[in-house]
Amino acid sequence: MKCTECGYEAPLSEFRYLYNARIDGSISIRQCKNCEQWLAVDELKGVALEKVTGGAAPWGKSAGIEGLAEDVKKKKRRSA
């Protein structure tokens, strides 16, 4: 896997596993041992996706109806 920030390449397991906040998803946070950057990683593909910054949402929105009202609004706007 290649670090998106410093280009360091190593097998997936050499990037320190930190955590996955959504057990039913395959996105985890790992740390590059070269530049120490936190990375969002697709565990199935073994690919680093992007660095994790404050406010980043690597798992997307929470499950359930979060954002429903906005989506409804958008749909309404579109249909209008």
Binding site: Y17, Y19, N20, A21, I23, D24, S62, A63
Partner: peptide, 19 residues
């Protein structure tokens, strides 16, 4: 399906986040 390092469920009888 939880890995070492992952938070455990938030507790009591609360279902796992997103499950």
């Amino acid at each position: 399906g939880r890995r070492l390092g992952d938070a455990l469920y938030d507790g009591g009888i609360s279902p796992g986040p997103g499950l």
